[in-house]
Amino acid sequence: MLLISCPNCGPRDETEFHYGGQAHIAYPENPNDLSDREWAEYLFYRENTKGTFAERWVHSTGCRQWFNMLRDTVSYDIHAIYAMGQPRPDYPADQASAPGLAPGAATPASSATTPTSSEGV
């Protein structure tokens, strides 16, 4: 069971969340121009990183907001939690300054300022 720090609600059990797969996949700018190969890449191909992975989660039982997370797919350690639309933080380089570090770090109070939106890539 992962303990995930929702940027809005603080640390909650994994069962309150749903997984959204790889983060930062942009909808093609000109869908009509894509080749079959490019469509396949957009629809079916996702990174399957062994190591630090940027992924989306939604706090479905709580605030119903999406957010991004950097997580190690081997140790399952959570390295950073950041808002939709924000670029992927460096890890480990930026470790100390990453927003919402590891479970427990983000409290509702401190995260009230974290921008959240369901837009972005």
Binding site: M1, L2, D13, E14, T15, H18, Y19, G21, N48, T49, K50, F53, E55, R71, T73, V74, S75, Y76
Partner: peptide, 13 residues
Amino acid sequence: DSYNGYGQRGSFH
């Protein structure tokens, strides 16, 4: 488990 993982272990729930 819903998430990607290589840890050869999953969640208790």
